[in-house]
């Protein structure tokens, strides 16, 4: 591994200043489960690595205030998955956090890191999209709140600007009853990078939100507000046209060795149908 300067700021302002000064040569270190691999294989060669874990204002945790959940960016997957508030209000997010890597990985990998890597296969990206999350970023210009759908650009690229770092993810607590689910396709049952990720959320108003990843350069959000998908009584044929429209933005790469485009596209539909069933069941069970 090539060497670098390691800094451990204690305030967000200090971290932002270092990040801003370093520009492309500075990298933020949260859990390190992605960055350390890249430092070792040489695909990341920062001169400065900024460790966020000793910043008091970025202490990991989940808190509820003002009708929303705020998850600190440094909260690890293990804690996201186990958090009672996340599990109650955003079950698909808890499910997604619980399948990121192995236990060892989940003990280190952070929600902020998962989002900032902007991997098209990031498991937490799709639930954050269906739950309409907001990414909170601090930068030289102050605080910016970025809708998650405006955050991802392509693999490894986000709309964060120079000197900005993600401090938290905010999730509005649904005002109406919802059901949600997260599903994925992997090459084995043990931990694996997904060749399709998909989250769905249905609510009592009949709105269905799908988000899917690993089938294009960035995760995609698709919304159906016709009420058709959320209604289990609607016959399959009526739903399929809408489903096709929902999945129209999938464009998997033929270069991937993990799965072919044809398989990914077919699985998107299989997973979509399965997740939708689970979410509808959850919604029905919750409103009993």
């Amino acid at each position: 591994m090539h060497t670098f300067a390691y800094v451990r700021p204690t305030t967000v302002a200090e971290a932002v200043a270092i990040l801003d000064a370093g520009g492309r040569d500075a990298r933020v270190l949260a859990g390190g489960t992605d960055l350390v691999i890249r430092l070792r294989d040489g695909s990341a060669t920062p001169t400065t690595v900024i460790d966020l874990k000793r910043i008091a204002d970025l202490r990991p945790g989940v808190r509820e205030e003002g009708g929303r959940l705020t998850i600190s960016a440094t909260t690890v997957m293990t804690d996201v998955a186990a958090d009672p508030l996340v599990r109650r209000h955003f079950p698909a997010l808890a499910e997604a956090a619980a399948v990121v890597g192995s236990v060892q990985i989940r003990n280190r990998a952070t929600l902020g890191g998962n989002v900032c890597n902007a991997s098209p296969a990031a498991d937490t990206a799709t639930p954050l999209l269906v739950f309409d999350a907001t990414v909170v970023a601090e930068g030289p210009g102050g605080t910016r709140r970025i809708a998650i759908d405006d955050f991802f650009v392509r693999s490894g690229v986000t709309t964060l600007q120079r000197g900005e770092l993600v401090t938290a993810i905010e999730l509005p607590i649904p005002a109406v009853a919802t059901g949600s689910a997260h599903v994925r396709r992997t090459r084995r049952r043990g931990h694996d990078l997904a060749s399709v990720t998909l989250s769905v959320r249905v609510d009592a108003l009949g709105v269905t939100r799908f988000a899917y990843g690993s089938v294009g350069p960035r995760p995609v959000l698709a919304v159906d507000d016709t009420g058709v998908l959320a209604d289990p009584a609607v016959p399959a044929e009526a739903r399929s046209a809408i489903l096709e429209r929902m999945f129209a933005d999938a464009s998997p790469s033929p270069r991937s060795m993990r799965a072919s485009p044809a398989y990914r596209l077919a699985m998107l539909r299989v997973l979509g149908a399965r997740a939708l069933r689970s979410a509808i069941e959850q919604l029905a069970a919750g409103s009993d």
């Binding site: 390691y6 270190l29 390190g32 489960t33 350390v36 460790d51 060892q104 990985i105 003990n107 280190r108």
Partner: peptide, 26 residues
């Protein structure tokens, strides 16, 4: 050395980590 095999697992502050993915300084 990519956090896949677990052969380097140790416990840090009560939690398992792949020690190949943790900088010592962390």
């Amino acid at each position: 050395l990519v956090g896949e095999c677990g052969a380097c697992t140790v416990i840090v502050d009560g939690r398992t980590v792949d020690s190949c993915l943790v900088l010592a300084v962390e």
